[in-house]
Amino acid sequence: GCFRSTKTSKLPRGEDPIVLASETPFTVNEIEALHDLFKKLSSTIVDDDLIHKEEFQLALFSNSSKQNLFSNRVFDLFDAKHNGVIEFGEFVRSLSVFHPYASEQDKITFAFRLYDLRQTGYIERVELKEMVVAILSELDSTLTDEAVDSIVDKTMIEADLNGDGRIDPEEWKDFVTKNPSLLKNMTLPYLKELTLAFPSFVLHTEVPD
């Protein structure tokens, strides 16, 4: 055990980089680089190896008190155990969906869960409208309620093929297959270049891929 004994000790207890690498598109080296990133993000406010919501907001918006509907949804999905913080394993497994080599089905499912605001198993029309209103207010738009309804109605007509007023997972899959640009933000090219993005790690690692 010349490499495990010296290099895996810095990861949080219970998280084996080899196991994480086997469950995700990341290599062991990339898991270690992600841990460097995680350590940085989890120590900006409270240095406790956990990403608190304020630390997540600080990383996303450079402001620990700024949040929006979508950053809250992303945080909630990353916080798989729903205990109010993101642990390292949750961080790695959630980010793995955003890897350029992650399966398209995983990206489609993650995006669906993101937009299924109330976790009913459907993206309801009311949820779609809530998201449109949230992004428009973020953009300081002053569209009328009628204009917002027309955006929402048009998208529902395209996506809700069975016309029951909500988008189910199969309809979502059809819709993003026809509109692949909708999955663009589900891929982070950075994740393919982690060891380049955090080269400090490469200098001191001896873990083979």
Binding site: V132, K154, N185, A197
Partner: peptide, 26 residues
């Protein structure tokens, strides 16, 4: 903006809250 031709999800996906690349910036 041309609201009637806009795809709601396309609009939503532009939210800064969904842009996780910021996590990788210093």
């Amino acid at each position: 903006m041309a609201p009637v031709t806009m795809n709601a999800f396309e609009l939503i996906s532009t939210s800064q809250g969904l842009n996780l690349s910021s996590l990788f910036e210093k």
